[in-house]
């Protein structure tokens, strides 16, 4: 069924994810050293707003018939799209994440990719899965109300 998205629902989802994000940052010694902690704190309003916007984008895609109405598709399609854009973005330019011309052998090369994936894509996947899951919660209630 189609996603119903009152603003309060989007806001609560964004709040939960942003708090989760801050907890993740401050529990991780690599990310909270020095001024990094302050940096992440200062961008958390932007994260909040970004998640609200993301929820609305998913709703629009869902209503326009571009996203299939199932959890897997609502999660995987945006996740892979964002991941791919990030991958292309960090690998072009003068300092690619996967350094050029290092003469790595195959297993080293793949290893570097997986290290990047675990560091960046795993938190992203968890967040997007949570958002998609939470987007589903309201829908069933709405559907039940509709049928009453």
């Amino acid at each position: 069924m189609k996603i119903k998205l009152p603003f309060l629902k989007a806001f609560i989802i964004a709040l939960i994810i942003t708090i989760g994000f801050l907890i993740y940052v401050f529990m991780n010694p690599e990310l909270n050293s020095g001024y990094a902690g302050l940096f992440f704190l200062s961008i958390s309003p932007a994260v909040l707003i970004g998640i609200i916007v993301y929820c609305y984008i998913i709703k629009v895609l869902d209503h326009a018939g571009l996203l299939a109405p199932h959890f897997i598709f609502r999660f995987l399609v945006p996740f892979l799209m964002i991941s791919f854009i990030i991958w292309i973005g960090v690998n072009t330019g003068t300092e690619p994440v996967l350094e050029a011309f290092q003469q790595y052998n195959f297993s080293e090369y793949i290893n570097y990719f997986f290290n990047f994936a675990i560091e960046i894509y795993l938190p992203l996947a968890v967040s997007l899965a949570a958002i998609t899951g939470m987007l589903h919660i309201g829908n069933n209630e709405v559907a039940n109300n509709d049928s009453m």
Binding site: L76, L80, S83, F84, A100, F101, Y104, Y109, I110
Partner: peptide, 21 residues
């Protein structure tokens, strides 16, 4: 869409390994 994005990843890794490593 999902399959073509996964293919995009695989191709970019293969390209990087073969031509820019």
């Amino acid at each position: 869409v999902i399959l073509s994005l996964i293919l995009g990843f695989v191709l970019s890794i293969a390209y990087g390994y073969s031509f820019r490593n």
